[in-house]
């Protein structure tokens, strides 16, 4: 049991919270990096290798385009359908292969990225599909290459929606990181489990909830601000509804 009236209780609580917050942020930042670096190209490939897409026929072959599309689609669905806790355990050998350990905050970045990449790729796919095909034609009529169209037209035009998708992705990474205590990664979720669940400390649970809530609120606020600036729309026009409604993956 814990004693809330002990002189060390509150300073210790803040200390534990602070460490947990830093660990959570570290996991989020690390996995977000890999999620964007890998998920963005996957999302682009998902859209462009579809029938009628820019890369419908890579190297002149429709069969290759449709194979790439199906494989990515399958992998993304697979990644999204396995519950995180199982995925994390199943990935232990992979994580060890990749970075030499499977325990700790760094190691948790691997499974967190693996679960967030498919989610983010879908978000990117939704955002890119909203880009008017006329803009791609405009790019083509100017003599732009496919790569130029992706870089200068497709992604910039979808950026404001992608930012919203990114914030939804971050929220779900935070969500999943709460389970990362299983591989001794620490984080706020671990604080809640160790102090709140195992030692019945309500102040710890409430504090974790408040910090997580504040974190997500700040994040969403910043994202929608940035998204709105990127959209350059007149005030009152609706943002990407598909992204807003997409919600998080299954935990």
């Amino acid at each position: 049991m814990i004693d809330m009236n002990a002189p060390q209780f509150w300073p210790e609580l803040f200390e534990v919270l602070w460490v947990g917050l830093l660990q959570t942020l570290q996991m989020v930042a690390g996995s977000l990096f890999f999620t964007i670096v890998i998920g963005l190209p996957l999302g682009v490939l998902l859209v462009t290798t579809e029938r009628g897409g820019l890369l419908e026929r890579p190297f002149g072959s429709r069969a290759l385009g449709s194979t790439i599309n199906k494989v990515i689609d399958f992998v993304v669905n697979l990644g999204r359908s396995v519950p995180f806790i199982i995925l994390m355990i199943a990935l232990i050998p992979f994580t060890r292969l990749l970075i030499g350990r499977f325990i700790g905050t760094d190691a948790a970045i691997v499974p967190l990225s693996v679960v967030a990449i498919p989610f983010f790729a879908r978000m990117v796919e939704i955002a890119l599909k909203e880009v008017d095909g006329g803009l791609i034609e405009a790019g083509q009529s100017l003599g732009a290459s496919n790569w130029q169209i992706i870089r200068k037209v497709l992604v910039p035009e979808a950026l404001s929606s992608i930012v919203l998708g990114t914030s939804t992705t971050i929220t779900s990474i935070i969500n999943f990181s709460a389970m990362a205590g299983v591989v001794a990664a620490g984080g706020l979720g671990d604080v809640a489990i160790r102090y709140g669940y195992q030692r019945y400390s309500w102040p710890h649970i409430v504090a974790v909830i408040i910090v997580l809530f504040a974190l997500v609120m700040v994040l969403q606020g910043l994202a929608s601000l940035l998204s709105r600036r990127l959209a350059h729309r007149r005030s009152g026009e609706r943002m990407s509804r598909a992204i807003q409604l997409a919600g998080g993956p299954e935990s």
Binding site: L135, A138, L142, P156, E157, S160, L230, A231
Partner: peptide
Amino acid sequence: GMVFQHFNLLGSRTARGNVELALEV
């Protein structure tokens, strides 16, 4: 050059940015 019925301008770029797209390409 080609012009379109629905203009097909990039909303993420200014008037100048849209013109410069042709030149960047």
